[in-house]
């Protein structure tokens, strides 16, 4: 059963609509690419799909019902900047086992070394931290992964290492993945289909890009 966004609308206070009328579905085992200019709301949509924000209009359906409010969330979000997604005052071991206790095979597949467990986040590189964030998100009850620019900050070799592991796990467990990226060649390589956020907003926000003072204007059309 799919993960669906139905008619999603979102804005901050009385600001312009960030998202309006967004329809999107990801099936199990499917990798869907999501692209669109900066500032259009890709990350906001990711946060809504994973339950971090509640949409003001529309809803997110998992297997035809709402996302669970308590307990383990089967839709896991992995962020672009791993250093901002881990607690700087926790040792890596504690971050790793926050949601579940990853098995040795997964750690091996992700090349996570045991000697990193006692380190603090600022002692590891971005690529190393991102491996921890993926291990944390890939618990047995995870069914959908929302990957928001997860390898944008990494070099090409680390990027392939990480994606090859994720692809293996996704195939093995039949997970659905939303791949958010600006990198067309990467998405072409990974995804079954690529969706442009502008094309799935049935009611495109007219306010975007007008750039009033005090409102964050989207930079792409100035």
């Amino acid at each position: 059963m799919p993960l669906e966004a139905r008619g999603i609308g979102f804005r901050y206070q009385r600001g312009p609509w960030v998202l309006r009328g967004v329809d999107l579905a990801v099936e199990p085992g499917e990798l869907v690419g999501l692209t669109g200019p900066s500032g259009l709301g890709k990350t906001t949509l990711a946060r809504i799909l994973a339950g971090y924000e509640r949409p003001l209009e529309g809803n997110v359906r998992l297997d035809g019902g709402p996302l669970p409010v308590t307990g383990y969330n089967p839709v896991q979000l992995v962020f672009q900047h791993p250093e901002k997604a881990v607690n700087p005052r926790w040792r890596m071991r504690d971050t790793l086992i926050e949601g579940w206790e990853p098995d040795p095979e997964l750690l091996k597949a992700l090349s996570i070394e045991r000697r990193w467990f006692d380190h603090w986040p600022n002692e590891l590189s971005g690529g190393e931290l991102q491996r921890f964030c993926l291990a944390r998100a890939l618990g047995p009850r995870t069914r959908y992964l929302v990957a928001d620019e997860i390898t944008t900050m990494l070099d090409a070799i680390t990027q392939t290492q990480i994606w090859h592991v994720v692809l293996d796990i996704v195939r093995e467990r039949n997970l659905g993945v939303l791949v958010i990226s600006h990198d067309r060649p990467l998405m072409k390589h990974l995804c079954n289909r690529i969706v442009d956020l502008e094309s799935v907003m049935s009611d495109f926000p007219a306010a975007a890009g007008e750039g009033e003072v005090g409102v964050r204007p989207s930079d792409f059309r100035i």
Binding site: S111, D155, A156, I157, T160, Q161, P185, K188, H189
Partner: peptide, 18 residues
């Protein structure tokens, strides 16, 4: 060469290690 060949458009080839 490994860096170049790791690009998605150049084969997405994996180089192990760190």
């Amino acid at each position: 060469k490994a860096l170049w060949r790791a690009l998605p458009q150049n084969g997405f080839a994996v180089t192990p290690g760190a």
